[in-house]
Amino acid sequence: MRLTLYVWRQPSADAQGDFVKYDLSDVSPDMSFLEMLDVLNANLEELGKEPIVFESDCREGICGTCSMVINGRAHGPESKTTVCQLHMRSFQDGETIYIEPWRARAFPVVKDLAVDRSAFDRIIQAGGYISVRTGSAPDANEMPIPKVESDLSMDAAACIGCGACVAACPNGSAMLFTSAKISHLGLVPQGQPERTKRVKKMVEQMDDELFGSCTNYGECQDACPKGISISFIGRMNKDYMKAKLIEVEEPRKEVESQ
C-alpha cells in the first residue's frame, strides 16, 4: 500500500504546530497503525531527523496510552478499537490520512501527538476510590453481590482512561470517563459509604480541570474503545443531583473530653 500522511508536528506545548506531509510506500495491510508509524519513524531516524512523538505501550488495547485522532475520529475509523489495535487493512491503497493529537482544553499538547492527560488522575484522586486500609478487609465472600449489578459495575470499570471520550466531545467533556468510575464504585455495596462524597468531589474536580459539560451529542460513547455506555452519565447526574439536594447531616466535629 502507498499512503500520504499529514501528521501534526508541534515541538512543544507553547510552540505553533502544523501538519507535515509524509509519503509512505510498502505498507502491509497486516501492520497495525502504530507499526506503520514505526516504519515512518525508522525512515526519519535513518535520515537523522526527529521522529514523530506518539505514545503507546501495551499495544493490546488495554493500557490506554495510545491516543490520536485519525481523519477526524478519535482512535480512527473502527468502532471499539484503540489505535494500537487498528490495522492498515482498514485503509485503502493510495489513501490520504490526517493524524492529530487529542484536541481538548484540558489536555494540552506536550509534543507532536502526545498530550498531557494528568487531569484524569486528579479526578480519580478527588474521590475515585473506596477507602479500605490494607489488611482491614473482611472475607471476600462475606459480601455477596448480585451478578447483574456486579457485571454492570464491570462494564463501567472497563474504562482504560485513554481520553478518547474527551477528544471526541465537541464540548471537551470528561463526563463519560468520570461517570464510569462513579458507576463502577457506586453500583457495588463496598462503594456505598463514600458514594455521596465521591460524586460531589469528582464532579467538582472535573469542572476545575476545565472539561466541558455534556449536551448529549453521544460522540463519547461512539469513540470509546471499550464501549462504555452513555447511560452511566445519566447515573452520575442522578447521583450528583441527590448529593446536592439532600443535605447530609454532619456529626458533631469536636470530641468531648472525658
Binding site: V132, T134, S136, S150, Q190, G191
Partner: peptide
C-alpha cells in the same frame, strides 16, 4: 483486599 476495594471479580448468580 481487592474485593473490598471494589474490584469487580466474576460472580455466580448467588452473588
Amino acid at each position: 483486599q481487592c474485593a473490598a476495594q471494589g474490584v469487580p471479580f466474576a460472580r455466580e448468580y448467588g452473588g
